[in-house]
Design a protein around this nucleic acid. Structure first.
Lengths: 199, 199
DNA sequence: GGCCATTTATAACAGCGTTCCGATACGCTG
DNA sequence: CAGCGTATCGGAACGCTGTTATAAATGGCC
């Protein structure tokens, strides 16, 4: 019917790879379609026929970011102790964010102006929180956590780690503050707040 | 010695006001020096002699944002009950963010690419958290909270409200999630995690 | 083999932050 | 009061951005 892409899927991957590198190196502001196309040995219009627009390209990065992130979350080994498991999940969350801070910015803090994830990408993003919700539902059912809506607890835990991580990444925390040293203590305190009774 | 500003302080305020309006209306991306200057009836170079650069202008907005924010924080009435007071402070924090979400983005989530607050602005920002730290120091000294470094608790509380608010503002929370309804419950749970013993 | 849709590259458009230039207008000095 | 020096201001230009119109090249289908 029509001319197939001469550059094929290979160019698509090359562009995504290079886009990730540019963002990782100098932040989201350094991602320019012109530079990206030049680095990949093509022209800007190729990006447009492959992705549609810059936000659409960022959407592909967003999706890839959540794929990796979801794998880390799902791969965390759990013990059955709700508080301990929430701490473990929180640690994996931070490790994931620190491993690729600029990708984290795209995924959670809208660091690329004008980009909004599409519906599919958002659905994938939401699915990565399933391990968290499973732990909480179980803890409530077992009578270990307070009997409140599970989403309230899940959002509370998520907000806590997201807040800590994003304050850290944006440099809002005082320089002398030792995040790594306080992180688990704080995670444990936050999770303990949902316990029905103190251990 | 030199020619004083013909436009005086009046233009400076006019520019800042209009800049705030532009950002409030269409987000940080809509703040263009050209449009700003045109709206104020002057030219872009005036902005440069008054502020130095676009980031410097944003720094002025940042400072103004923290001035208002600090006033709200300091104006919160406290009762002496640590958990209740932390909930009250957290509510004031969210109210402040919802009142001017785009300003909140400038202050806490680096929503303007290329902007970094200068030292004075950062010092002012840090001072707005003093009411929070006072409550916590008192609660630890009174033996009501766990005996951990106060900064750990303060950052933990701050991270929690910041996380919740920023997830809400960036639209990352599921649409059906009722933030207002869960907010105080979650705040209370988070603060309770630091209690030495359950009430 | 020729049609046709589609990708591709070149170049243009509109916008951005910033800077150079020349003119202007003020404060200080004589 | 005159004039110099200097900071400010408006207009135009520079180099960059995302996006798009135009036109050439290309591979599948009849």
């Amino acid at each position: 019917m029509a001319r197939p892409r001469t550059h094929d899927e290979a160019l698509r991957l090359k562009l995504l790879d290079r886009a990730g590198e540019l963002i990782a190196a100098d932040g989201p502001k350094a991602l320019s379609l012109r530079k990206l196309a030049a680095d990949a040995g093509t022209s800007t219009t190729a990006v447009y026929s492959l992705f549609g627009s810059k936000p659409d390209l960022v959407n592909a990065l967003y999706t890839e970011g959540f794929r990796r992130f979801g794998a880390r979350m799902a791969g965390t080994v759990l013990t059955g102790d709700p508080v301990g498991d929430l701490v473990a999940l929180g640690s994996a969350y931070r490790a994931s964010a620190l491993a690729d801070p600029n990708l984290y910015g795209i995924m959670f803090t809208r660091s690329v102006p004008g980009f909004e994830p599409n519906e599919d990408a958002e659905k994938l993003a939401r699915k990565t929180l399933e391990p968290l919700e499973a732990i909480i539902r179980r803890a409530i059912a077992d009578g270990v956590f307070l009997d409140v809506p599970p989403e309230t607890v899940a959002v509370g835990c998520w907000a806590f780690v997201h807040g800590l991580v994003s304050l850290e990444l944006t440099g809002n925390l005082p320089e002398e503050f030792d995040v790594t040293g306080s992180y688990e203590t704080a995670l444990r305190a936050n999770a303990s707040g949902w316990l029905r009774s103190r251990p």
